[in-house]
């Protein structure tokens, strides 16, 4: 089961993104195409391969499992996250909660979001239902973001490149997701 996190600035530019593979539930079935190829080749062409395998599997097993390439399809993920922004922006005008759970759905993906008071948007794509875990994860990311924000050289539009930030977010993802 994978999770995809995007941090978006108030003007919707992505500042940070993270793909997290949760150890907890179902093991990802590796796509049949990539298992035949050596490791180095799959890593280089991961996107193409999963796209291909997604296409082939839909032909072979009619609707058996609907997971698009095990969630590794980068461009589809980004598109879903982007598409959910419309819904998020509508909701955040009328709801005063920071954590907006399950705002959007697309195939197997559910989109949850967290809006900070400074209008940063955290968007998370996930497959299962895990409201409390996701909430704790978002609050952790918020704390880390506030700390990043306190850097005088950081603006609301600076991409976050700190390795410590990255490590901390990953650790929190491991704990809560």
């Amino acid at each position: 089961m994978s999770h995809h996190l995007f941090l978006l600035s108030p003007s919707d530019t992505p500042l940070y993104s993270l793909t997290h593979f949760s150890a907890k539930p179902v093991q990802n079935p590796t796509s049949p195409l990539s298992s035949n190829l050596p490791n180095w080749s799959t890593s280089a062409f991961a996107g193409t391969l999963t796209a291909l395998s997604g296409a082939s599997s839909s032909g072979q097993q009619s609707g058996g499992h609907s997971r698009v390439g095990g969630g590794q399809d980068r461009h589809v993920i980004q598109m879903i996250a982007n598409a959910s922004l419309d819904v998020i922006e509508d909701l955040m005008k009328t709801q005063n909660a920071m954590y907006l759970k399950s705002v959007d759905k697309f195939n197997e993906w559910t989109v949850s979001a967290f809006i900070t008071p400074g209008n940063m948007k955290f968007v998370l794509l996930h497959e299962g239902k895990n409201d409390d875990g996701i909430k704790s994860f978002f609050v952790d990311v918020w704390e880390l973001y506030v700390k990043t924000m306190l850097n005088p050289f950081h603006t609301a539009h600076t991409p976050i490149r700190s390795s410590i930030f990255d490590t901390r977010v990953r650790a929190s993802a491991k704990k809560h997701l």
């Binding site: 009328t94 709801q95 005063n96 909660a97 920071m98 954590y99 900070t116 918020w142 704390e143 506030v146």
Partner: peptide, 14 residues
């Protein structure tokens, strides 16, 4: 953050 991060459902002002 200081006011809301401990609450069960953090709120923004709308």
């Amino acid at each position: 953050w200081r006011a809301e991060s401990q609450s069960k459902a953090p709120k923004r002002e709308i």
